[in-house]
Design a binder for these strands. Sequence first.
DNA 1: GATGTGACTTAAT
DNA 2: TATTAAGCCACAT
Length: 113
Amino acid sequence: MNHQYQQQIWQTVLQIPCGKVASYGQIADLAGLPGRARLVGKALGVAPEALKVPWYRVLRSDGKIAFAAQSEQAKNQTALLQQENVAVFNNRVKLTLFQWQPDLADLLFKLNY
DNA sequence: GATGTGACTTAAT
DNA sequence: TATTAAGCCACAT
């Protein structure tokens, strides 16, 4: 059986609205997996393209893009974010301006908790 | 089983 | 801001 946690992670990331970002830890918590931020990155890495999971809206807790600054992946993620009017400077996003502030009660309801 | 490795986080320095 | 150390956990060796 496929790991349930991946589904929960993908579903949670899908809740991030266009133009907003979230951290790996935040997604882990909302997905019911506190302390397992690393699993979020892993799950995003194997997310089916068909699900169209906005993986690029997920950043480190300090707002930095998780990939090496010069990497193609980081460049690509930066481009996708800027496409949604999210400002990226030095491989980092200003969380005070762009971080997603989910309505927990509403989200938990959607996730059937 | 033991070890090393990450798309991580927090706290301390 | 940068660096460390410790905690985290699925996976590959």
